[in-house]
Amino acid sequence: MASNLDTLITVFGGSGFLGRHVVRALAKRDYRIRVAVRRPELAGHLQPLGRVGQIHAVQANLRYPASVEAAMRDSHAAINLVGILAESGAQSFDAVQALGAGAVAKTAAAAGARMVHVSAIGADENSPSSYARSKAAGEKAVLSAVPSATILRPSVVFGPEDQFTNRFAALARISPMLPLIGGGLTKLQPVYVGDVATAVADAVDGKTKQGAAYELGGPEVLTMREIMEIILSTIERRRMLVSLPFGLAKLQALFLQFAPGPLKLTPDQVELLRSDNVVSSAAKHADLTLEALGIAPDSLEAIAPQYLWRFRKTGQFQHNGA
């Protein structure tokens, strides 16, 4: 039987937040990894995650099918992690998350390669959110080209380089108050990036059901308010939590969509927060969850202190309040 050393996996979007954890998980299982990214010269941080020569970065852009085909040459499996949280120029939701996902799947089908596609809980063709609609269109395009593909839908993903907990912790450093859009009642099921990466590697190993969509959530369902309270407790800062009605938040987002760093907020992101983002009972009954793969998910409270300490006034040292 061939070992994983003979298996080449192409990871599209492998240099991003989830990507680096997926690359590490695959490297630990001895796969050869080709990381396909728009800027390979910025993917040097991936090299130490594997042995010499095990990880190789190449240029590819999902909007250019020829580059996708070149990145898939001689590859045994394709993993598509490419996604955006906000549109920018030619990088529109449809171009990246719908048409782009389809381009990867068509190339995988032509190469006879396995396909793992990371989507998101909340992917829905009837959603008022462009992001959620494009995610649903991407899933459809992937399964149309590769009916045996595995779809993984995480809830909001947290971890050391995330744009979620880090963003609010950074905001707490500069603002005396934090906004709770829609009163902070939206329910989320934050999932640790390392657990999602393990699920992706399991799918490559062939442990997932073919053509199925798995919903990946952490061990707890938390409201947005509860998540903010965990972040503030972790970084030892007291801040006012101010309820912001959806209508007002959407109005603010018209201006904040052009803001830098943690202040950025788009109208589409506000729209997404109108719906809960949790693992469905249908996925649980069908055994399409992390637990069904034998993965015991880590909680936000267990992991967040390992990287959010840098937002404390006293850094990694203990302190009794702020």
Score class of each variant (00 low, 15 high):
Leu265Phe: 12
Val22Ser: 03
Pro245His: 13
Ala103Ser: 12
Val82Trp: 13
Ala113Val: 07
Ala259Tyr: 06
Ala95Ile: 01
Arg238Met: 10
Leu42His: 05
Ile231Met: 04
Ile227Gly: 08
Tyr214Pro: 09
Asp298Leu: 14
Ala199Pro: 03
Val157Leu: 03
Leu171Gly: 06
Phe164Cys: 06
Tyr64Ala: 09
Asp74Ala: 05
Ser134His: 03
Ser281Pro: 00
Ile230Arg: 07
Leu241Arg: 09
Gln252Arg: 05
Ala145Asp: 12
Pro305Phe: 08
Ala203Lys: 11
Leu244Phe: 00
Ser148Glu: 11
Ala90Ile: 00
Leu251Arg: 06
His117Ser: 12
Glu220Asp: 15
Met115Leu: 15
Gly102Ile: 00
Ser148Asn: 14
Tyr214Glu: 11
Glu291Arg: 15
Ile230His: 04
Glu139Asn: 09
Lys313Met: 08
Arg238Leu: 04
Gln163Trp: 03
Gly13Lys: 07
Asn277Met: 12
Leu42Gln: 12
Asp202Met: 13
Ser144Val: 05
Asn80Trp: 08
Thr289Trp: 12
Asp298Gly: 04
Ile181His: 14
Phe158Arg: 04
Ala249Leu: 07
Gly89Asp: 10
Phe17Leu: 10
Ala203Asn: 11
Lys187Ala: 06
Phe93Asp: 12
Lys135Trp: 00
Leu188Arg: 01
Tyr64Val: 14
Phe93Glu: 06
Leu8Asn: 11
Arg153Thr: 09
Ala101Asn: 07
Leu171Cys: 08
Leu290Gln: 05
Leu273Cys: 04
Val278Asn: 00
Arg24Pro: 14
Lys28Cys: 08
Ile235Asn: 07
Ala86Lys: 09
Ile235Val: 15
Ala103Val: 10
Leu46Lys: 01
Arg32Gly: 01
Arg310Thr: 14
Val82Asp: 13
Glu229Trp: 02
Tyr131Glu: 11
Lys313Phe: 04
Thr266Trp: 12
Leu85Ala: 14
Met228Pro: 07
Ala296Pro: 01
Arg133Asn: 01
Arg310Met: 13
Ala103Arg: 15
Thr165Glu: 04
Leu46Trp: 07
Phe246Val: 03
Leu263Trp: 12
Asn126Pro: 02
Ile174Cys: 04
Asn126Val: 02
Leu46Ile: 08
Leu248Gly: 10
Gln54His: 07
Ser134Val: 06
Ala98Thr: 04
Ala197Thr: 03
Val156Cys: 01
Gln97Glu: 15
Ala25Lys: 01
Met228Asn: 00
Thr234Asp: 03
Val156Ile: 13
Ile33Arg: 11
Ile231Cys: 06
Leu248Phe: 03
Gln257Tyr: 04
Asp124Asn: 15
